[in-house]
Write a protein that binds this DNA or RNA. Structure first.
Lengths: 165, 165
DNA sequence: GCCTACTTGTTGAGAGTTCAACAAGTACAC
DNA sequence: GTGTACTTGTTGAACTCTCAACAAGTAGGC
């Protein structure tokens, strides 16, 4: 198609440090949560989203959108969270296809118990390592990257079977 | 233990944007590689590490160290890469426990075929979104985060059974 | 030599994610 | 109403990763 615009030496270096730093960071956060609270990071974030929603309740697809997760992934995850007694499903009265996920009191308690350790890890491993200027810079950089990430790609699986028959 | 130092509003915002941006970015890179080259991102990086090693050969544990991967994970991955014909195992003559992973010609060709698409995605989704100053800042920030990430944690599983008997 | 401690790499089971396929319901034209 | 297209959420299989357990080999004391 077009000849490749390879990375410069410096870009390569930044890219590798960036990946190593971020993968290492997320890895440690995930380990901390799994070790101390027996939940994967993705499940923690589902609980957070629910805890902030009105009535601690969200439609499955809204929750998937918020978390940038596929419907399939969320469905499996909520099934596990339901087994743990942290989330309940409730049907939607106005749309019989739909279903709500509701954070239970036990789920909220589990989240409250997990939060301090998680926040401490984020502080120690991220914010304590950066100057106030760098924190601002990271915010700007993140926003710039976000502008190019199509969040829809994760959530939906466009079925194009009807388009080119 | 100690009372929690919660995140400030601004820190929270940066944290969420950061996670969303990074998870979205890695997700898209992984999808691009899987879609266009039928390999997970982690496998791509294994091939890269091997391609840069003398004789395209590395001890399993060195490779695990380079990639910040556990020995178990690497062993499974190399098994898959061997099935694909991209990597071969060779035994180590001086240490009969050890084994080498060697990138095959087919593996090198697969890497060459995958690289342009991957680099284009990294460019488009990351470097094209950032100013030269931001790229420098990201490099510094990554180094700072890296300083607090203990890369050993991933690789080894310290067996402390003998310590406190 | 022998014995204990450690290292290397593999294995199998369990857990989370992805993908494609699916049932059930909704929306809207006709 | 009927029919077609789309949406919602779930399911099962395949795949990757993690964890614990393991066999085999090395290192160093004695």
């Amino acid at each position: 198609m077009s000849d490749t615009r390879w990375l410069t030496e410096r870009e390569q270096e930044v890219w590798r440090d960036f990946m190593a730093a971020f993968l290492g960071l997320t890895d440690q956060l995930a380990r901390q949560l799994q070790r101390d609270s027996a939940m994967p990071h993705a499940y923690y974030e589902i609980l957070v989203s629910l805890s902030e929603a009105p009535d601690r309740t969200l439609r499955m697809s809204e929750l998937a959108g918020l978390r940038g997760s596929s419907r399939s992934r969320l469905s499996h995850a909520v099934a596990r969270l339901e087994e743990a007694g942290w989330v309940m499903r409730r049907e939607c009265p106005t749309d019989k296809r739909g279903s709500f996920a509701v954070l239970t009191d036990r789920g909220f308690a589990a989240l409250e118990a997990a939060a301090p350790g998680h926040v401490a890890e984020v502080r120690e491993k991220l914010f304590d390592k950066l100057t106030p200027e760098q924190i601002e810079q990271l915010g700007e950089i993140s926003k710039a990257i976000l502008s190019g990430v199509d969040t829809s790609a994760t959530t939906c699986c466009p079925d194009l079977t009807g388009g080119d028959r």
